[in-house]
Simulated scan of single mutants.
Amino acid sequence: MAIKNFYFSQIADLRIEGVGIHASYSVNLTVTDENTPGGKNISVAATGKSNAAKAAGSGNLLFWCKVKNTVDSKLYVLERKKGEYWAVGLDDVPIGSVSFFMPNSVHNSPSLEIEAGYFYDSGYTGTVPPIPGSFKRVINLTPFQG
């Protein structure tokens, strides 16, 4: 079983007074990759971080993350489940987690396409995405066994 951490950052701008380039953000992913007969068991957990809410003086950051399995093109949305506990740093925002099975494939190398971003929620004027509103990355997994 392989457990790997991935840290992705994105320079961003948020057109709210006091924020601007402080809207840049990062997402930390923990990916568990376990080979089994017929495929892989995959787990992905994510947290996000940005100084946008501090720069604006108030508001909340609503992070989101999607994971696409490149073998069979299934899309998974990370979410926090009831009763799930997270160990996070002072400024980390839990995004969520997902677990799924990836079937063995001789035609495709196992990888995950990640898309993540956030919305700034002021609480009274609505939600606004930063510019750019998200980033995409590819994570290559260990090869299928047997």
Rank of each mutant, 00 (worst) to 15 (best):
Ala12Gly: 08
Leu75Tyr: 06
Ser26Gln: 06
His22Ser: 02
Ser109Arg: 12
Val71Gly: 09
Pro94Met: 08
Ile16Met: 03
Trp86Gly: 12
Leu90Gln: 07
Ile11Glu: 01
Lys4Phe: 03
Asp13Gly: 01
Thr47Gln: 01
Asn140Lys: 15
Ile11Arg: 01
Asn51Ala: 05
Leu141His: 11
Ser58Lys: 10
Ser134Asn: 09
Thr36Ser: 09
Thr70Glu: 15
Trp86Asn: 14
Val44Met: 14
Ala2Arg: 04
Ser111Leu: 07
Leu141Arg: 08
Leu90Val: 07
Ala46Ile: 03
Val19Asn: 00
Asn41Ala: 15
Ala55Val: 03
Pro129Trp: 04
Cys65Asp: 04
Ser122Asn: 07
Lys82Ser: 14
Leu112Ile: 10
Pro94Phe: 09
Ser24Trp: 00
Ile21Cys: 02
Val44Lys: 11
Trp64Arg: 06
Leu75Phe: 04
Lys66Asn: 10
Tyr124Leu: 15
Val31Tyr: 03
Asn104Gly: 05
Ile16Glu: 00
Gly126Lys: 10
Thr32Asp: 11
Gly123Ser: 11
Ser58Arg: 08
Val44Cys: 14
Thr70Gly: 14
Glu113Cys: 06
Phe8Glu: 10
Thr125Asn: 15
Pro37Ile: 14
His22Met: 01
Asp13Gln: 01
Ala116Thr: 13
Phe144Thr: 05
Gln145His: 04
Gly48His: 03
Asn51Gln: 02
Ser24Lys: 00
Gly96Tyr: 09
Lys136Ala: 13
Val71Ala: 10
Asn69Ala: 11
Leu62Val: 15
Phe63Thr: 00
Val67Leu: 06
Ser73Ile: 01
Gly117Arg: 08
Asp92Tyr: 00
Lys68Thr: 11
Lys82Pro: 05
Glu84Gly: 10
Ile16Cys: 00
Leu61Phe: 02
Pro94Tyr: 10
Asp121Tyr: 09
Lys40Asn: 05
Ser73Val: 06
Ile139Tyr: 12
Leu29Asp: 07
Phe8Arg: 05
Thr32Ser: 12
Asn60Val: 07
Ala46Met: 10
Lys81Val: 10
Lys82Leu: 13
Ser73Cys: 09
Ala87Gly: 06
Val93Cys: 03
Phe135Leu: 15
Ala12Leu: 03
Pro129Glu: 11
Ser109Thr: 14
Pro132Ala: 13
Gly57Lys: 09
Val31Lys: 04
Leu141Asn: 10
Gly83Gln: 03
Phe100Asp: 07
Ala12His: 02
Leu75Gly: 04
Ser105Asn: 12
Ile114Ser: 07
Leu78Val: 12
Pro37Phe: 13
Leu112Ala: 15
Thr127Cys: 10
Trp64Asp: 04
Leu141Ile: 08
Leu90Ile: 05
Ala12Val: 02
Thr36Glu: 15
Tyr76Trp: 08
Ala53Glu: 11
Asn35Trp: 08
Lys81Asn: 12
Tyr118Leu: 12
Val31Asn: 04
Thr127Glu: 15
Leu75Trp: 10
Lys40Phe: 10
Leu112Tyr: 15
Arg15His: 01
Pro132Gly: 15
Asn41Thr: 13
Gly48Lys: 02
